[in-house]
Design a protein around this nucleic acid. Structure first.
Lengths: 346, 346
DNA sequence: GGCCCGGATGTTAGCGCTAACATGCGAGGG
DNA sequence: CCCTCGCATGTTAGCGCTAACATCCGGGCC
């Protein structure tokens, strides 16, 4: 009544009339195996439906061929796309992928999620999560494997570990702001994303710098989340101010979703986009191009970020230890996409 | 010059002055360990920064405590939310999660993705992917572990394996259609999603059944993807027809993104929603509530699906073998959300 | 006081694989 | 014609853990 145990290498060996080591050699493409023997082994494998036991292999080789992906746990288009691209690049490179999502946005959650990954013996970690807490947790925990973070961290001198890969958020923010300025707007508002996100900080910094350089009136309002709801609520709060003569005539929203909520609220107040207010988003979420008016936004190369993160990981593995520990950054340019939600200000 | 090997249980044992087995007992909460001994062991573990080797544990126990999640590889809000909920429920239950994404939408990719998971020795699989090819691949491959599929497969008699968990797509489709009918529309169009998706089939079937039962004019158009672009293109194709007297006055789109594209195209043709045409979407994507007009849609319980999938998996593990092999289905109700994009037809 | 019992701990034997070394055998050179 | 070399294969010893069994010890019992 023994349950029909899954066949092991020894079973295959016996069936093929060879030693288990020969089976191993066949599986690992060792050169010195006679073609005929190889055939016999492969046949036995097929007949038995044999599959190599990964745990045993990992134990014997001290390698797991597994990479951990840390996600922020939100289903937004951007991060989801990057995670997907990361996973597919990783699997293309022959690695298995294990994921760990942040339960909440704080240091404890970040440490916990990271530890879960390390406990699995991952050979590398890709953190698709531009949250400061995650970056700090990585600095502190100092995981025993290379780490690549997809986040616009620019205080790399502060970072003790890891490679940072990101779309240049500062540049994106600058282009969005310059675009509005170029249209003649002189009083702008930036709805900045939550402060603990590197990307939000960068976009806000760019907005501040550029408006200051141009001597424009500018104001930054922080929201506590990335959702359309936040933009909507803020829209209501902002409407009266916008209507006032000399009030702001352009808003740069931290992301497309916020922009959508904002535009809705403005519409409810009888304000027209772009006639009364220009609005710029960030991300170029699927659908933004089809809104009425279509949303001017900064397109992020989400998939490319995933690819770049994996490239960075491969590089880290290839590099000698010293370089692995160094902090490096790969930067990809985002792209301003001008559409109907922004217009000239007389 | 040996690299500083990560400490093993034996190292901890030596340091604590006990046998490695005692360390194991402490780690596994075995009752008969003297508190004092436990303390000593825990101290040694902390000092050495010891972490148990999962591969060795898996090998010795023949358990991986890992569950595989199969994803469709698209970054849409719905599937992404479900995947996230699945992962977090799984990790709450103490399982590790490994993912495998479909590279393309065909049988070979489905088999490949599934095999990747099986090769990792997963103890269960959750397929968040309502694609017929995936369901068939599961039937055929017959993985050596319980499988839960999040897909509205209703030909369960055809299914040979697995448990199906889904939001009742047929019901959602029916409610959407009845809503339009109730508003007085008598000529409707349904933009159906790609045919290889169970969910698309169900929604279309409901539309057909309900319109037929009411003797309404109805037409189903299939699109080959779920993107806003598809809806946009179709909107252009449909505009003239809609403008014709006696033409369709209501469109039920396969999802919100298609509805968004559609509305944009209709707008470009000077058609107003809901005055000239009513539009219903499906999913209630974030942002749909803030469109102008706000989109009437069928809200899907994406997160609940993930939870339910994990519940089903737990059940499958608990059940005796016979039941594990049976096909079961858990159905959750979606919810019609009426907003501004639908209006009465005189 | 000897015996038995059970709690606390140690010892041993794998789990299924790979790495390292051992063996056997035919070909080529001296 | 024997020795050597290298290919093809086998044998052995772990990887780090858990499970099963062995051992030791003190207390309660008759």
């Amino acid at each position: 009544m023994t349950p029909p145990r899954r066949p092991a290498m020894a079973d295959v060996a016996q069936r093929a009339g060879v030693s288990h080591q020969t089976v191993s050699r066949v599986l690992n493409d060792h050169p010195s195996v006679r073609p005929e023997t190889r055939e016999r082994v492969l046949a036995a494998i097929a007949e038995l439906g044999y599959r190599r036991n990964r745990a045993a292999r990992a134990l014997a080789t001290a390698r797991t061929t597994t990479v951990g992906v840390l996600t922020s746990g939100n289903a937004h288009f951007g991060p989801a796309s990057t995670v997907l691209a990361t996973e597919s690049a990783l699997s293309r490179e022959g690695y298995f992928v294990t994921t760990s999502a942040l339960g909440s946005y704080d240091a404890a959650a970040a440490v916990g999620a990271l530890e879960r990954l390390v406990d699995q013996g991952v050979e590398g970690i890709v953190a698709v999560c531009p949250l400061v807490d995650v970056a700090y947790a990585i600095d502190e925990l100092d995981p025993p494997c290379p780490v690549v973070v997809v986040a616009a961290r620019r205080d790399e001198q502060g970072a003790r570990r890891g490679r940072y890969v990101y779309a240049d958020q500062y540049r994106g923010g600058r282009e969005a702001t310059e675009h509005l300025l170029g249209l003649g707007h002189t009083n702008l508002v930036h709805i900045a994303g939550p402060e603990r996100w590197f990307d939000a900080r960068e976009r806000a910094a760019a907005f501040r710098d550029v408006t200051a350089a141009h001597g424009a009136q500018a104001r930054v309002v922080h929201v506590r989340g990335w959702s359309a709801r936040r933009g909507y609520d803020l829209g209501h709060a902002l409407a009266e101010e916008i209507r006032r003569p000399g009030g702001p005539t352009a808003v740069f929203a931290a992301n497309d979703l916020i922009a959508i909520g904002l535009m809705r609220a403005l519409w409810e107040h009888g304000l027209r986009v772009p006639d009364d207010v220009s609005v710029v988003g960030f991300d170029d979420v699927e659908g933004s191009a089809y809104l009425v008016p279509a949303l001017t936004t900064v397109r992020q190369p989400f998939a490319a970020l995933g690819e770049a993160a994996v490239d960075a990981l491969l590089e880290a593995w290839a590099a000698p230890d010293a370089a692995t520990l160094a902090v490096t950054a790969a930067v990809i340019a985002p792209e301003l996409v001008v559409r109907g939600s922004t217009g000239a200000h007389e």
